[in-house]
Amino acid sequence: MPTLYLAYRVRSLILNPSVIAWSILFVLFWVFMWIYVFGNELASFKGEVWYESAVKSYVAVMYSSLGIVSMGSVAVALTGSNAVMASSIRYVTRFTRLTSTRLLIEDLSASILVFSTVTATIVASSILLSWHRYGVLVVPEKPLPLVIVLLMLGLFFYLLSIVMTRLILLFAGAKILQTALTMMPLAMSFIPYALLFTKTSEFIAYAYPPIALQALAIEATSGIEVPPTGIVVSLREATVSKHLEYHVNLATTLVSYLVWITGLALIAVLLSKRIKAVHPEELMI
């Protein structure tokens, strides 16, 4: 049986003003912009043979990429709250039922649940608004792979936030560093978004797995195989040529992802041995 920590952690994250403002409202604003402003021209092609497929790929690109930005925003909230609770954790893991392992399991479960809830909100809003604007219901073609990819991204951003928290504790007292490290997950979540519009070498996509995972999420949603970067450009070209040059490689993505997850976990463990006790007064986040 989980302790009350799990339920209260979920509640505190979901009701965190930063999560509501940045992960939900800010991202919903961009969903609105994608559908009603950037995608305004698309609606004028209603009736064309390729219209439905174009809407599907456009909406898939939108909610896959914005979902990652949303996760990055949740990771920012996680980083800040983890830093503040650091001194409690030292006591709690020794003298309460919450052992380090139990705390990790409950915290990870709570975080993944929040990542899923926030992403589901973005996906559901995108589907509803796009149906309202384009008259096409864009339900994911392959829901299970989509859920798996989103869970993988959730775990990635969770571990990233843990590493950032430990770096913050290591550099406690340096305000600029603390602020930069807190916001790092959000900055990193924008990298896949930026590469939607730019074709780069495959190496970059596999060197930083959220880029390739974004492409896999788009594939799972639209059913169209896409390249890892420059997806928007490639989809436009494919409308004319009916052919996409290459698509994201699942095996390479998985290898890169596993290397990153292992690396982040190792760094988190190594840093935990170096960080000293930091009292909330020393934290300026």
Binding site: Y8, R11, M85, R94, F95
Partner: peptide, 28 residues
């Protein structure tokens, strides 16, 4: 590790596990 009822203290930093209201914090 997990030594319940071994030690408790009234330092505020011990009670900062989650940023939640006092009622739920006490329950937790």
């Amino acid at each position: 590790s997990a030594m319940t009822r071994l030690l408790a203290l009234n330092l505020p930093e011990v009670y900062r596990l989650l940023p939640i209201d006092c009622y739920r914090l006490l329950r937790l």
